[in-house]
């Protein structure tokens, strides 16, 4: 029985820069923590598009669009299995340096940076939703 419980777990790794762990599988539920790119967590199931994970001994939920699952792979083994391979197919993530493209003619990075300065918090979204009667 004990062995079966261990096998039921799988590993998920965060694939976005930053994301929230939630108290329930709902975007508008409270945040448990913020986790960043590359964080690996133990999960036991998926509920309505959310991985149920263990974070610091507590149960939390991570949306499946923010992570990649490695079923059948333990946390300890994950770095050996991925690591190099993932970086090898990563064209931009490793090795991309903005200095190499800044100033190159034909690109307007100034306007891209303008867009990137706008960050939306969950509170903003909640307010926006309420004000718009959505």
């Amino acid at each position: 029985m004990f062995t079966l419980l261990i096998l039921a777990y799988f590993t998920v790794r965060v694939t976005v820069e930053r994301t929230f762990l939630k108290t329930s599988p709902d975007f508008f539920s409270d945040n448990v923590a913020i986790v960043s790119y590359g964080t690996s967590l133990k999960a036991d199931t998926i509920i309505a598009g959310w991985y149920r994970v263990i974070y610091k001994g507590k149960r939390a939920y991570l949306h499946e669009s923010a992570a990649r699952s490695f079923k059948g792979i333990s946390l300890a083994r994950l770095s050996k299995v991925t690591g190099k391979g993932e970086n090898a197919i990563s064209l931009a993530a490793k090795g991309f340096e903005e200095s190499n493209v800044t100033g190159v003619k034909g690109y307007n990075l100034k306007d891209v940076k303008y867009l990137e300065k706008f960050k939306v918090s969950l509170d903003n979204i909640k307010r926006f939703k309420e004000q718009g009667e959505l």
Binding site: T15, Y37, E86, I89, F96, Y107, L109
Partner: peptide, 19 residues
């Protein structure tokens, strides 16, 4: 293509369009 790659590709594509 990882999420990170997609972002950087899209960022430059946007920069091209915004030019």
């Amino acid at each position: 293509v990882s999420e990170k790659d997609e972002y950087y590709i899209g960022r430059l594509t946007a920069a091209k369009i915004l030019k």
